[in-house]
């Protein structure tokens, strides 16, 4: 392998690692904000109507999984970059 090829290889690895970190970091912003809003609304709803807790919590868990999934997609992309 020539010196140039080695440098290119190292650069690809470096940028892939950088991209992996950015992917998971930026990807987590959205679901963090979303889960925060949903959680505050859940507490609000339970405080207003304590008897609705079970039903509200079920749909919260469902929405939680949807929001969390966005970060997990980012995580998969980060892993693909990292173990390139």
């Amino acid at each position: 392998m020539s010196a140039e090829a080695v440098v290119t290889d190292v650069m690809i690895k470096a940028y892939a690692s950088l991209g992996a970190g950015l992917a998971i970091g930026l990807g987590a912003i959205g679901s963090a904000v979303g889960i925060g809003i949903a959680c505050s609304k859940l507490i609000e709803a339970i405080a207003r109507q304590p008897e609705s807790e079970n039903k509200v919590r079920t749909w919260f868990i469902l929405g939680f999984a949807f929001m969390e999934a966005q970060t997990l997609y980012a995580f998969v992309v980060a892993m693909m970059l990292f173990f390139k």
Binding site: E68, A69, L72, Y73, F75, V76
Partner: peptide, 9 residues
């Protein structure tokens, strides 16, 4: 992908 990524993560 949701289930797989959750378990793998």
């Amino acid at each position: 992908v949701r289930l797989f990524a959750n378990m793998m993560a």
